[in-house]
Design a binder for these strands. Sequence first.
DNA 1: CTGTTAGCGCCTTCAC
DNA 2: GTGAAGGCGCTAACAG
Lengths: 330, 330
Amino acid sequence: MGHMAATIKDIARLAGVSPSTVSRVLSNQVEFYSEKTAKKVKKAATKLGYRRNVGAVELVTRKSNVIAVIVSSVQTNFSDQIIQGIQDEAAKKSLSVIIIYAGGSDAELQRRAIETVIERAVRAILLVAIDLNPQNDDLLTTANIPYLFLSMRFSDRPFPFITSDDFQIGYQGTQYLINKGHRQIGLAATDLESLIGQMRVAGYRKAMSENQLPIDPHWIDDGEFTYEDGARAMRSYAKMAVTAAVASSDLAAIGMLNQAADLKIKVPSDFAIVSVDGTNLCSIVRPKLTSVTQSFYQMGATGLQTLLSPRLKQFKSSYTPIQIDERQSS
Amino acid sequence: MGHMAATIKDIARLAGVSPSTVSRVLSNQVEFYSEKTAKKVKKAATKLGYRRNVGAVELVTRKSNVIAVIVSSVQTNFSDQIIQGIQDEAAKKSLSVIIIYAGGSDAELQRRAIETVIERAVRAILLVAIDLNPQNDDLLTTANIPYLFLSMRFSDRPFPFITSDDFQIGYQGTQYLINKGHRQIGLAATDLESLIGQMRVAGYRKAMSENQLPIDPHWIDDGEFTYEDGARAMRSYAKMAVTAAVASSDLAAIGMLNQAADLKIKVPSDFAIVSVDGTNLCSIVRPKLTSVTQSFYQMGATGLQTLLSPRLKQFKSSYTPIQIDERQSS
DNA sequence: CTGTTAGCGCCTTCAC
DNA sequence: GTGAAGGCGCTAACAG
């Protein structure tokens, strides 16, 4: 109790064999030891409460079995699903996954998170909803560790990513509302600075113009995917001739919902809402939110797979499917 | 680009000094080098894009700067707050924190998570809402790494913990409803097998008996803190003469809320609900949920502090404060 | 099948 | 101030 941790040397001594032999049986190199010594070694190991020192192993083998997932600490309630996908995929390949929080878009916190994982020489890095600050580009690209962005993409830099097609999100969400008979439709709480936002706007415009519907610029509402932005958007729409909107996130949609209620605007009869994301938040509010649902789990699972693929070099960034889940808000 | 990562040897060669010197300037042992060589070394380091190999450092120094947080993958939406508390505290001491998901109470997944962190010889382990399977006790206790449970405690084992006082949660939640004039009060979706549940029941009973209120055993509702359990509890209460209840979690409370609406039971006029946890879910539903709010952030922050304290040995498990936040459901 | 040797990248005495 | 030597715990040839 309470001494230093036992090493293979200790085991070797106790079992009366060499350290290499211990190493061989403990790492299960079945071809290279007899059952008899194996038994001795294993007994000694359990007796000493031996625990392998992974750091030492990684140092000498020069490879790691850990997958690092860097997630934005911003309130993104979908990252759980992505992580679950990564986790399940990792388990199949007996890799361990560690999760690191990076601050929102604070460059310094991002840098620390990235440094933490590359200094440990992890096997691969998944960045979930991380809007990488350009001054950290080098850090990531020169580390010589495979990396992949999930639920994020950049217009100005060629980083590999897997995400949903945000054009389609905008397009299909809008088209859905048009099919429901709406003609004055808003796009709410969407970050117009970001590529994500711009793509969604483009999809929105396309759907509207395909249906010969004019757009009032005020219908396109700038914001940051938050609850409060949703509420604000609703207040703004209340003064316009808008009968429906695509919200930028589940939280934003809930903000709209609650604000609508406060304004005595009935959803969906007076105003229809389509949310984007489709997390379980959609089902715990009333009315339940119709959503453009993203395949977050698949994003995570596919993400890890491609990162582990031997021909990662040829990987083209890709999209995971989206679908409309009709519930009660439309 | 794309070679092996540079080592201090490479830097030494390039700068024309010995590896020891490089090590000294890079680890800032200011007493032990001249400004002149420092400059050379640093230049060479940045030129080669040097990144310290933390694994090697930890191996030789035999200590680590990483704090491991093991969280239950069960839908516990409060763990974010705990982690944030840990994170902020860790940042002050320039420690890095890694998060590992353990499965619900699946012993095997738990074991893997714990193994992962102890084989890396992390500095300390925080277990968040982990109901440790007894067969993993040894793993944790013999690892010789300081550990602490957060938002969890055990009756049968003396593991150190920081959590809320669940007796008080039951007591104060119930007392609050009594003060509001209720006399038939339920305790919903609470896991009666768990210590947490038992303490809450005890608090509930105390409050009732102090006010001379009889308890119908059916009012104490077994469940697992989930949304569905909350909904089920509400269905059950609808058939009884109960006018209010303390729910076991925010999610359970929302389940009650929605089920009540489906049953045309008005909250709070027909039925009052007090939730337990007080996460931001309480504020995004309508009516907003009154809650017994736990100090999760503080749990995390204090947790890490005590784990790092030199006199951890004398640490007595402790409680973080709770408070009633009155909103609209009561 | 097993032991010996060498070394992963780094830090830390110990000399100078 | 600086370099040489040794070793953290482990694995991977290389001989037997």
